[in-house]
Each structure stands twice: as structure tokens, then as C-alpha cells.
Simulated assay, not measured.
Amino acid sequence: MPDVVSEKMILPAGGGAFALSSLTLGIFLNDQPSHRISQGSDRAVHRPLRKHQGWLLPAGSEGVCEYDEDLEFVTVSLDDRLLDEFGLSSGAGFQAIIGDIDPVVLSISLNAAKLGDGGLLYRETMSRALAAQVVQLIKPAPAWHAGIEDRRLRRVLDYIHDNLANDLTLATMADLAAMSSTHFSKAFKKQVGVSPLQYVIGARLDLASVLLRTSRLSVSEIAWRAGYQDMSRFSQHFKRKFAVTPAVYRER
């Protein structure tokens, strides 16, 4: 089965039940002011949709779609294997999107039927571009994004958590946020509640605590993976936060 399956259909007014075996995107090619849809129930809700609006539904979705005019639309289904490459273990379990479609997803999906006209490299590139954008839309935001509205700071937080074992400098973080170091430090503390340095230390110690509970790595290896080159400093910081040494914490 291909990673991406696209179909273009024209259906008479009416509608009917649907059952999706994989994550599927539907894009309307004509206005449907009377469109009604139900998901997981037999009660349809009026959701008018315009041309190039539609829905993104998880695998396993069942329901009813109704409309009072002939419907022309495109469906694009993504295989779980492709989604898994981008960190989504299944196409199920996310909040359905009904209405406006992300512009990048819309553009690629409208051309998905032409993927077979290109070579293998083109098909794989476009399929993965679509999967990456869809996963970005539906994957739950990491816990550290909670309450942070500034996208620049979210980008910095992602960078911190992706690079805890590396040298994290204020200058690098400020550059990533496109701010001066002074402005970045003030903005970060206002939004997050602690300074960038305090946040990095806390994130590193949280990672260390998880590794101590769930792995058999040595304490020195865990310290290194959490970004500490100095064992005494690691032990000092860890005891300050958790009130016990790393070795004692592991034995609990």
C-alpha cells in the first residue's frame, strides 16, 4: 500500500456513513453551505464548508456526512508507517480538524493525485513533506509549551530540551529567539517564571531524575547526558532540588 493515497470524487446530494482505516484529509472543491457531519455518534451537526475547506480525521473515525448539493472533493489518506517516521506512533487519537486547512497541507493535498506522474524521489519527498506538516498540526504540544504564547520562546524551549547534553549559551538562545541577550532574558523570565539559566538547570535535573528511575546507566553517564561535565556540580544541584543525592534517589 502506498504511503499516501489520494482520490478525487463527485457524489450526488445526500451523503452517508463513513469509516476511516487511516488518518484522512478531506478537501471540498465546491461550497457546501448545508454540510452536516457527525463523528462517533448518529447526530449530525451543521458545519458549513467552503471550497478548499474540509476536515482532518484520525484513523478509526466513524460517522455520517450529509450535504444537500452535489459534492466534489478530494481525500488524502496517510499510512501509519509514514506518520511514525515523524514521531506520531498512530494516526488515531487527536482532535478532529473541521474547517480551514493549513495552507501547506492544502497545497500538497490538492496536488497529491499527481504524485504518480513524478519520479520516485519526487513522490517520496512530497509524501514526507505532507506527513511532516500534518504531524506538526496534530501532535500534542510538549508540556513546556503550556502558557507560553510567544512562538520565539517556544522555539527556544524546544531547542533547550533537544540539546540538554550540549553547551547551552545565552547568546545562542537569544539568537534563536531573534532578540538581544538582555531583551531575551527579560522576556524569558516574564513568560516562563525563571531565568534561562535556572530553566536549563531544572530541565537537566528533571531529565537526570527520569534516567535514574528508568535506566541502568551509571550516575556519571546520566550526569553527562543531562549536560553536566562536573560530577560534583551535578550532585550539588541534584541534592539542592531533590534533597537527596542521585544514588539515594535511585534506590527509593
Results as ranks from 00 to 15, higher is better:
236 Q>R: 15
157 L>M: 10
158 D>Y: 00
147 G>T: 06
109 S>E: 08
107 S>H: 10
19 A>I: 11
49 L>E: 13
184 F>M: 06
223 A>V: 07
27 I>W: 00
100 D>W: 04
200 V>C: 05
233 R>D: 12
239 K>W: 03
144 W>P: 01
201 I>R: 12
152 R>L: 09
170 L>V: 06
190 K>F: 02
197 L>V: 14
172 T>E: 15
238 F>S: 07
159 Y>M: 12
161 H>V: 12
126 M>T: 14
131 A>T: 10
197 L>W: 11
172 T>A: 15
239 K>H: 08
81 R>A: 15
245 T>L: 14
167 D>Y: 09
87 G>A: 11
35 H>E: 11
208 A>I: 08
14 G>E: 03
154 R>I: 02
37 I>L: 14
47 R>W: 12
41 S>M: 00
96 A>E: 13
29 L>T: 08
57 L>W: 02
48 P>Y: 07
108 I>N: 03
122 Y>L: 13
116 G>T: 02
149 E>V: 14
209 S>N: 02
150 D>I: 05
13 A>F: 04
220 S>I: 14
179 M>H: 12
171 A>P: 04
211 L>D: 06
53 Q>E: 15
36 R>D: 07
16 G>A: 04
104 V>T: 13
233 R>L: 13
147 G>H: 03
78 L>I: 06
231 M>G: 09
2 P>D: 08
43 R>K: 15
210 V>A: 10
235 S>G: 14
89 S>D: 15
83 L>V: 04
179 M>Q: 13
249 Y>E: 07
157 L>I: 04
53 Q>F: 05
167 D>V: 14
217 L>V: 02
161 H>F: 04
154 R>C: 11
110 L>Q: 13
196 P>T: 01
173 M>R: 01
225 R>T: 00
180 S>L: 03
204 R>W: 02
24 T>K: 01
148 I>Y: 09
132 A>N: 07
159 Y>I: 05
211 L>F: 08
170 L>N: 10
207 L>P: 02
42 D>Y: 07
32 Q>Y: 01
60 G>S: 02
41 S>F: 01
210 V>Y: 09
139 K>P: 09
150 D>F: 08
37 I>C: 01
105 V>Q: 09
162 D>I: 03
173 M>C: 12
94 F>Y: 10
11 L>C: 11
208 A>F: 04
77 S>Q: 13
113 A>S: 15
101 I>M: 02
178 A>F: 14
127 S>C: 07
56 L>F: 01
197 L>D: 14
178 A>H: 13
94 F>T: 06
22 S>V: 14
185 S>P: 07
115 L>H: 12
187 A>Y: 00
164 L>D: 03
40 G>I: 01
103 P>W: 05
155 R>K: 15
26 G>A: 11
180 S>K: 08
141 A>K: 12
177 A>N: 10
133 Q>I: 08
159 Y>P: 10
47 R>Y: 13
79 D>G: 06
234 F>D: 04
235 S>V: 11
251 E>H: 14
81 R>W: 11
153 L>C: 00
195 S>M: 10
67 Y>V: 08
194 V>G: 01
230 D>A: 04
173 M>H: 01
18 F>I: 02
57 L>H: 00
228 Y>K: 07
194 V>E: 11
227 G>T: 08
236 Q>W: 06
25 L>H: 07
37 I>W: 01
28 F>D: 08
107 S>A: 14
185 S>K: 04
213 R>W: 02
182 T>F: 11
220 S>V: 15
194 V>L: 10
184 F>K: 01
16 G>V: 07
168 L>C: 02
242 F>D: 01
